[in-house]
C-alpha cells in the first residue's frame, strides 16, 4: 500500500549567486509503501532535505505533486539539530505537538512522559536542553516527533552532528521504535554505512538537480553493523553512489 508518492517534482530556489535561481530538484519521483524504512542518500546539497520538506508539506513544489493515496497521515519530523525550545524542559518540549492540538494538559503530560521513557529519558522530564548532552537532546527531539503517534516519520540527517557511539546507539533505538510502532520511515542521510544498516530501501540521489539515480532494495536482517550482508549492501550502495556522482 503506497503511503506517500512524489511524482515529477521540480523545485527552484532564488539565489544571490546565480541569476534565475538554483534548480534543487528536477523530475524527482519515488513512492514509499506503508511500513517501509527508506533512506534518501546523497551528497550535501543534492536536494534530499528539500525533498523531505516537500513530503512534510513545509514546502510546495513548482512542478509535480506530493500525494498521500490513503489520506495524509500524522507526520513526525526530526531535524539535523535537536531544535528544542531552550527555555522549556524536556517534558514541555516533547508535548509541544499535543499542546498545539489543544490536548488537555494532563493527558499531554502523560503521553510526553511516556514518549520520553521510550527513548530512554525517564527521569529527565524536568531537565532543560542546556543540561542535556547532544545525544540526549536528539532523543528529546525524537520523543517529540513520536508523541503524537505519527504514521510517517521524516528524519533529516538526525545523527549527523553526533559522535559515532551515540549515533550507533540512536540508530538501534530508531530501528526498535520503527518495529514496535509499525512506522513508515523516510530517513535522509549522507552516510552509506548508516543507510545500509538501517534501511530496507535506499534511494540514491546524484548532485543537483536532485532526482532518484538508483533504487536499491536491501532484503537483509539488520542485526549486525559488520555482518557480511551489511558490508555487501554498503558495497552495492557505494557503487550506485559512485555511478550517480561521476
Amino acid at each position: 500500500m503506497t503511503l506517500l508518492a512524489l511524482s515529477g517534482i521540480g523545485k527552484r530556489f532564488a539565489s544571490t549567486q546565480k541569476a534565475g535561481g538554483v534548480q534543487a530538484l528536477d523530475d524527482l519521483s519515488f513512492a514509499i509503501q506503508t511500513g517501509e524504512f527508506v533512506s534518501l542518500l546523497g551528497p550535501s546539497g543534492c536536494g534530499k532535505s528539500t525533498a523531505l520538506r516537500l513530503a512534510a508539506g513545509l514546502l510546495t513544489p513548482d512542478a509535480g505533486a506530493v500525494t498521500f493515496p490513503h489520506g495524509k497521515p500524522e507526520i513526525g519530523f526530526v531535524f539535523q539539530e535537536p531544535t528544542l525550545m531552550p527555555w522549556a524542559d524536556a517534558l514541555t518540549n516533547t508535548r509541544l505537538p499535543l499542546v498545539l492540538k489543544s490536548m488537555p494538559r494532563r493527558e499531554a503530560n502523560a503521553r510526553a512522559a511516556a514518549a520520553l521513557a521510550r527513548v530512554g529519558l525517564a527521569g529527565f522530564e524536568r531537565a532543560l536542553p542546556r543540561e542535556l548532552s547532544g545525544g540526549m537532546k536528539m532523543r528529546v527531539s525524537i520523543a517529540r516527533a513520536l508523541v503524537a503517534q505519527p504514521k510517517l516519520l521524516l528524519l533529516d540527517e538526525p545523527f549527523a552532528a553526533l559522535d559515532e557511539i551515540t549515533r550507533n546507539r540512536l540508530g538501534d533505538d530508531l530501528l526498535r521504535l520503527w518495529r514496535e510502532d509499525g512506522l513508515t520511515v523516510l530517513f535522509v542521510t549522507h552516510s552509506v554505512s548508516e543507510s545500509a544498516y538501517l534501511s530496507e530501501r535506499v534511494l540514491v540521489m546524484p548532485p543537483r538537480p536532485g532526482r532518484i539515480a538508483a533504487d536499491i532494495a536491501l532484503p537483509h536482517s539488520r542485526d549486525d553493523r559488520l555482518s557480511s550482508v551489511t558490508i555487501e549492501a554498503q558495497r552495492g550502495i557505494n557503487a550506485a553512489l559512485q555511478a550517480a556522482t561521476a
Binding site: A56, L58, E81, L96, L100
Partner: peptide
C-alpha cells in the same frame, strides 16, 4: 528558530500559538 516554526506549522499551530 526557523525549524521550530516549521515544526509548529507542521503540527497545525495557529499564528497566535
Amino acid at each position: 528558530d526557523f525549524n521550530l516554526l516549521d515544526l509548529a506549522r507542521l503540527h497545525g499551530a495557529s499564528r497566535l500559538q
